[in-house]
Design a binder for these strands. Structure first.
Lengths: 211, 211
DNA sequence: CTTTCGTGGTATTTGCCAGTACCGTCTTGC
DNA sequence: GCAAGACGGTACTGGCAAATACCACGAAAG
């Protein structure tokens, strides 16, 4: 009877939600929760405050919705193979994984989002935990299973796969993440990224001791 | 003539400054700039708002003073030798440096301070840049000169000393820093720290490839 | 045509807090 | 012991923004 109508309404609401989320995302990611007022968001979406309160409850609800939405967007990148591909050197594979990962991470939007998660984690621990579990933790795990496969094949020698996966991830980042978040310098050239990744992978594979 | 007096006054002011800084530090580090009101600080120091405005100008001035003060405190730790000590294996030396560094870094106070620097960097880029230059950057440099010495002696084989110093630092941290800042879990056991450091150093020295 | 619901726009309420002003008190140097 | 400046306490002001209430309009249903 009213199925058509309620569906139509839901569709309309979904569109409205998207518009608000998109506008709010830009502001929240750029300026943060405190520095963004609802009026700024409304100024971009048009419409009225009632939209926000009807759809998201309050400002905090909107913020969480935005951040969880961002989580989904960002994590869709970064592939890590389950096992070694034949015919490709491990070095090349690691470089490929690392470059893809680092290019994804060092986008200004991603870094800003990460920053906002850290800021938000102070007031809203759940959100930070969720973000960590869905972000870095997942990457570590994928890399672990990949490494386990390589170790089983005798292609790598890693006494502790967990430590190794974290180590490689971090040495690929090379502190660029922290630097960006502290200095606000979000621009890194792709050339720099490739250089960084290839050197980190070489060091990871061969170690620092002379042969 | 009034040398005594002015000095006495200065001493008194210095004491007052310290009291305010100490009280403000706890609150700023714990709750952050926005969530800390001057009334909270005054409630701990006793005294009146005039102290703060006379001594620090305004709330922001107080915050910056606190953060710079924290910088000084934290950085007084962490020694890195200029060159290799004879009779001690490189592995032991790196483990010693790494453990000291990581134990220093993973104190709740230090992590919270770092978090606040990141938060503050959004509004006050200068402060973040200063903190980065005085913190991580210094550590990297020290490690670089140390590595350069080891390479010159033929004890290490590092094509890029800068990348290597960043890599070791980051793999020693192993993402624990980021995890703490995102999840709010600031407690890491010293046992875990030693384990983490020793495995990271081994991997750094020998690499992942089988011999 | 009218009622009703969803919605845009705006005014109001409420609370918070930085910054300032004012007054009373206490210390300090003469 | 007495001026003068320093300091504690508190009230006041101004501004901002979240949350709510209220009004106006347009579209769909009866």
């Amino acid at each position: 009877m009213c199925a058509d109508k309620s569906q139509a309404v839901n569709l309309a609401q979904d569109r409205r939600k998207r518009v608000i989320l998109d506008a709010a995302r830009t502001l929240f990611i750029e300026k943060g929760f405190e520095q963004t007022s609802l009026d700024m968001i409304i100024a971009r979406t048009g419409g009225s405050r009632r939209n926000i309160y009807d759809l998201f409850g309050n400002k905090e609800g909107l913020f969480e919705a935005v951040m969880k939405d961002q989580l989904g967007r960002i994590l869709s990148g970064t592939h890590v193979p389950k096992s070694a591909e034949d015919g490709v050197s491990i070095q090349s594979q690691l470089e490929a994984i690392g470059t893809e990962f680092l290019m994804g991470l060092l986008q200004p939007t991603v870094l800003r989002t990460l920053r906002q998660f850290i800021v938000a984690a102070g007031e809203r621990p759940d959100l930070g935990q969720q973000a960590y579990a869905a972000g870095p933790a997942v990457l570590y795990e994928r890399l672990e299973t990949y490494f386990s496969a390589l170790v089983a094949e005798g292609k790598l020698d890693l006494p502790d796969v967990e430590v190794a996966s974290r180590a490689l991830t971090e040495m690929i980042k090379g502190g660029l993440e922290l630097k960006a978040m502290m200095t606000g310098d979000y621009e890194v050239s792709t050339k720099q990224i490739r250089r960084q990744v290839s050197k980190a992978v070489l060091l990871f594979l061969h170690g620092a001791l002379p042969r």
